[in-house]
Design a protein around this nucleic acid. Structure first.
Lengths: 332, 332
DNA sequence: GTGAAAGCGCTAACAA
DNA sequence: TTGTTAGCGCTTTCAC
């Protein structure tokens, strides 16, 4: 492989001049610059980014720790993050945390070992005790995504509370009083916040949460299907359901279908998270859609700012959701 | 940050001993090893992978060039690849090619600059003229994924031809004779092969392809929707449709729905690619499902073998699809 | 405007 | 069994 030294020799200059031409880091005589450029062209030289990173102390690399790339939501998030980074000349390294602190710790360690310039983490439950302190100790800029945690760093996620609240209120407005809820994975903020939104909506109308109407779907399609099946098999089943994320919505739909119930006549349904096929489904799903693009782009923006040395109070940004009013709620 | 030198000093040994303890590359007296390990423990030392890569000439990094991370299919593929790599101690760098050779070239260049040990590419149309030669010239091990190309390197993708053929035959068996097809992006092998499967099925029954029944969905939901809408608005519209990938299936469904037609009574439908929600949809979709896990794992396996110096005839592996017989085809 | 030279932190001969 | 040393290919001071 051609090295910078080779290019320098061919152009009859020193390696440092080649470096400066490449980086534009100091004035170079036009004639010499041309010679260097010709030598680069001729040899097809490309600089070795690893050596560059070692010498310069910056890798132009950002790590992302996330779970369940299979979930289209996270897939889109990765996509959004990748695009924003690549626009800024950075490259993305992904690791899957499987929503488990130990894997997460392994992923972030590996990212730190690779000297990433910054890190974006969708924290697993327990992350604030294990992974995140470890990351901040190294001084690596860190932005949390999707879920928030009680720790001082930039965080960006969807609006959870008021979105879940609105979804629930909508059912209340339609006259429902026994509203079931499918709750997500314990220990992550989005679960808590969305559930709190549900609770708050009920409270406004003087209804207290009936524990029998709360099922734990653990953010999983299969678990949600099983739990909803059980819930909806009971004689005193709810007249409406709020599903608090996309995977669980699929499980909920499967359960309802397998019981032979129909939506919305037997049970009304509103969902946190939208699908590309939401309005293909019969009935079309009423849902709160996250703005994944904005979440990803914002996270990258905050991170790059930190990488560039910006030093200010950490921010917590909530990106609003969009309410898609369709038919599964039982409206005309 | 602690370096290997610091650890060595604390343990009272040389840096090379520390290196060998870490890598297990030569025998070290138990007592010294213990001292080194203690020093590592005490300092929380982690080795700088960038320096290691520069010195050793291997980065333990694999690059992936892929398009449309948004598509759940590719999301799952990335996931499968990431998992297999991480099991082998490698790390994944992703780049989005946007299914465009120029972006693809930029992505692969950037990956090569980062000295990836190997590369997995889902080639864009035209890749064999631009990107791939560039990669092979560097000697970097390369595996093609999802789409095949006429070039000598390992390739792994789904079974396209016979799967599309079976889907089409199924419609023929049900008595359909005017069968429309929604074809994917031009210039990529999966499109050609799937379309050839459709053609072959018709040919077997002595039917020649009617160009009026072929629409180009360009592997895009929106384009497919528009084109299918047009096709199905015609008086002599087909009685059945074959959609050749997941994105176009969604477009097809939207079009059919917007025209007020029902499946399968007005038009039967079979699809290449399955969805997690395929059997939630009414009618449940008859589809050929790819085995993304196996595709990803196989690609990684082939690549690692090359990285380890395996030198044999390039292989082309086709992973079979699974036929999910449901109701959109019009069967009971 | 340009070059020499000292690292960046590690690996891997080579020596002992 | 262990240490010494010469790089890996680049950036960046410092001196000219």
């Amino acid at each position: 492989m051609t090295t910078m030294g080779d290019v320098a020799r061919i152009a009859g200059v020193s390696a440092s001049t080649v470096s400066h031409v490449l980086n534009g880091t100091r004035k170079v005589d036009t004639a010499t610059r041309l010679r260097v450029e010709a030598a680069i062209e001729q040899t097809g030289y490309r600089r070795n980014v690893v050596a560059r990173a070692l010498a310069a102390g910056r890798t132009h690399t950002v790590g992302l720790s996330i779970s369940a790339l299979t979930n289209p939501y996270f897939g889109s998030l990765v996509h959004a993050v990748e695009r924003a980074l690549s626009d800024a000349g950075y490259v993305l390294i992904v690791g899957d945390s499987h929503d488990d602190v130990d894997s997460e710790r392994r992923v972030t360690d590996s990212l730190l070992d690779r000297q990433v310039d910054g890190m974006i983490v969708a924290p697993a439950a327990g992350s604030e005790r294990v992974t995140l302190p470890q990351v901040t100790r190294t001084g690596t800029p860190l932005v949390l995504i999707d879920r928030c945690v009680d720790i001082a760093c930039d965080q960006v996620g969807p609006e959870n509370f008021s979105s879940a609240q609105s979804l629930t209120e909508h059912l209340l407005d339609l006259g429902h009083r026994r509203i079931g809820v499918v709750r997500g994975l314990a220990g992550i903020s989005s679960t808590t916040e969305r559930f709190d939104g549900y609770t708050a909506a009920l409270a406004e109308r003087g209804i207290t949460v009936d524990a029998d109407l709360v099922v734990d779907g653990q953010s999983s399609t299969d678990v949600a299907e099983r739990e909803v099946c059980e819930l909806m098999s009971r004689a005193d089943r709810p007249t409406a359901l709020v599903s608090l994320n996309n995977a669980m919505t699929i499980g909920t739909l499967k359960a309802v279908r397998s019981l032979g119930l129909s939506i919305p006549s037997d049970v009304a349904l509103v969902c946190y998270d939208d699908f590309e096929w939401s309005d293909l489904f019969e009935p079309k799903l009423t849902a709160a859609a996250q703005d994944v693009e904005t979440i990803g782009a914002t996270a990258v923006e905050l991170l790059l700012r930190r990488i560039r040395g910006h030093d200010a109070e950490p921010q917590r940004i909530r990106v609003p959701t969009t309410f898609h009013h369709r038919h599964s709620c039982g409206c005309a």
